[in-house]
């Protein structure tokens, strides 16, 4: 019985297809016939507004996903190992392979695909710190127009905030206590020293993406985004801290 039905199905598959094809034509004809009535119908404007909003929401999501991928890729491909210590240190600019920034005393080793930066205390080995917490959460006192907080994440001792604008552009700001590390790509990037509120920071420029790394007291911070140098420095200079509670 089952074999018989299967044979029939195979034999009739062409007929079924033709039935489907003609039924679709039949539906199309029905739609044409109802055209006049459809055009006379009062269509709710609210639906048009909803649809436009739906499209815009999706466009934003798509842009966010694209930016996130771009930033993630940027972070993944290489690394800056950041170990932050206290200020007041010696600075010596080294060769192309390495340089030091006096204030943070961080040593940067430029490798093929990444830059390793260590923040060290003068006259002593790297301090091992554990059990660090983030009692205070960063608060950006300045953010370029249209950027709003869209996401906040915590990974261990690191807190990351994502700000997005209507175009789906993302600025990522992260804070981390001294002693933790985080990663940023520096392959084919241009790295320079900048001043942040009379302190020093490292600005890494790769294409349109800028990364700024600096410290405030016991906290290491970075900003990543497709923003110009003046803006990224302005954001950094206006970062303050608020009690987490």
């Amino acid at each position: 019985m089952k074999v018989h039905i299967e044979e029939e199905d195979k034999l009739l598959s062409g007929l079924y297809y033709q039935i489907g094809k003609q039924y679709a034509e039949h539906i199309s004809k029905e739609l044409e016939d109802m055209d006049e009535a459809v055009n006379q119908l009062d269509y709710p404007e609210g639906l048009n507004a909803w649809f436009q909003e739906f499209l815009q929401e999706n466009e934003k999501k798509e842009q966010n996903v694209r930016r996130r991928k771009q930033l993630n890729g940027f972070s993944r491909r290489a690394a800056i190992f950041l170990i932050v210590i206290i200020s007041g240190f010696a600075l010596t600019t080294l060769s192309v392979e390495a340089f030091r920034l006096r204030l943070f005393n961080f040593v940067t080793e430029i490798k093929d695909q990444y830059t390793k930066i260590e923040f060290r205390e003068n006259n002593g080995p790297k301090e091992e710190r554990t059990g660090l917490d983030l009692e205070n959460t960063l608060f950006p006192g300045y953010m370029p127009m249209d950027y709003t907080l869209t996401e906040s994440q915590e990974f261990g001792t690191m807190r990351i905030m994502h700000f997005s604008n209507n175009e789906g552009e993302v600025i990522e700001i992260a804070q981390s206590p001294i002693g933790t590390s985080f990663q940023v790509d520096t392959e084919n990037a241009v790295t320079s020293e900048v001043e942040i509120n009379n302190g020093k920071g490292i600005l890494i420029v790769k294409g349109n993406v800028r990364t700024l790394i600096w410290t405030i007291d016991q906290t290491a911070l970075y900003i990543i985004g497709e923003i110009n140098e003046a803006e990224i420095i302005k954001i950094a200079e206006n970062v303050t801290f608020k009690d987490k509670n």
């Binding site: 079924y16 039935i19 094809k21 003609q22 039924y23």
Partner: peptide, 20 residues
């Protein structure tokens, strides 16, 4: 097709979805 729609247009619909 005309007779199938007469019996139940859902049948025409499902055959169309499946085979067309």
């Amino acid at each position: 097709l005309r007779k199938l729609i007469e019996i139940n247009s859902d049948y025409a619909d499902i055959l169309t979805l499946k085979f067309y």
